[in-house]
Structures are given as structure tokens and as C-alpha cells.
């Protein structure tokens, strides 16, 4: 899993910050300002690079009753098997400098691969996952799955 990401303040357009009230998600990490996007936040959102610009999109579903899978993560294999075939899935990049899992912040070079699906209330993004490497499992207290990184192997 990857239950949070961080992106430098300078990497998000000011208009987005005010539109989505992201100031509440602004943190200071030893003098470096960054926006943190955590699954526990309400609403959970993620920045997404889509159509040549960055958008802030709701992250997954915290409801077990709706049509969407519960959680913010889906296996790449399940998507390939047609999990979102009805919802016009679109592969995107979730830009991030850092990822968070089980208490550890780890470096992300470019971002995480995600999938945006269309719902009646608008687009929703999920992180794409694959079985965790030995490295990732050790770093994250044996998380069985890990995000798929863009041009990065860990």
C-alpha cells in the first residue's frame, strides 16, 4: 500500500490551492513546505497529471456501498481484466516527491501510476498497485502490495 504522498508547495498552481482549500494540507518538513495527501484526510484527494495539467481529484472510495471498489488502490492486473471497463478508465500520473507507508517517507522520483474513472459525481482516482518487492516489504512493515512508480524501481 501507499497511504500518503507529498508534493512540494512550488509544484502546485496557486489557483488549485485556493480552489481545493489545500492550505489545510500544507506541512513544514524541516523548512520545506509541502502538500501532503493522506488517505485519512477528509475528503481524500490526490493531485493528478491529466490532459497536460494538474488536477485535484477525489481519491478512491471510502464507502462499501457504492459502485466503486472500496479503498484508494487497485491492482494493475484487475484493471487489465476489466475492473473499470464500464467507467471509461484513463491511466494518469499522480505526481509526488515522497510516498508514505507504515510510518516511513520514501523518495519518489516522478510519480505513481494511477487510473481515473468517471462516475456520476465526477472523476475518481485510484493508485495502481502490484505485488511488493522485497525492498518495499521490508521498508513498509511487510506491505504485500506497492504502488507502480513512474520510471523507478524500488
Amino acid at each position: 500500500m501507499c497511504t500518503g504522498t507529498a508534493l512540494a508547495r512550488s509544484e502546485l498552481p496557486l489557483a488549485l490551492v485556493s480552489q481545493h482549500r489545500l492550505a489545510e494540507r500544507l506541512y513544514d518538513r524541516d523548512g520545506r513546505e509541502e502538500f501532503q495527501f493522506q488517505w485519512w484526510q477528509s475528503p481524500a484527494v490526490l493531485p493528478v497529471r491529466r490532459n497536460g495539467r494538474i488536477e485535484i481529484i477525489p481519491w478512491g472510495s471510502k464507502s462499501r456501498k457504492g459502485p466503486l471498489p472500496y479503498g484508494g488502490w487497485v491492482s494493475q492486473d484487475h484493471v487489465a481484466e476489466g475492473l473499470f471497463a464500464h467507467a471509461n478508465p484513463e491511466e494518469v500520473v499522480i505526481p509526488a516527491n515522497l510516498g508514505w507507508q507504515a510510518g516511513a517517507w520514501f523518495l519518489i522520483v516522478e510519480g505513481i501510476r494511477g487510473v481515473v474513472v468517471e462516475t456520476r459525481s465526477g472523476p475518481v482516482v485510484y493508485m495502481l498497485m502490484e505485488p511488493a518487492s522485497n525492498y518495499y516489504r521490508n521498508m513498509t512493515e511487510q506491505s504485500p502490495m506497492m504502488p507502480i512508480f513512474v520510471r523507478q524501481v524500488i
Binding site: D30, L98, G103, A104, W105, F106, L107, E141
Partner: peptide, 16 residues
Amino acid sequence: PIWEAKKKCPTGVYVK
């Protein structure tokens, strides 16, 4: 071990 390090330094960034 990282599980000890992250307790001591929760804001630390870990790199491969």
C-alpha cells in the same frame, strides 16, 4: 533497522 529509524526520525526521507 528502518523500523527503529523512523521512530527516531519521523520526518526522515528514505532513499534507495
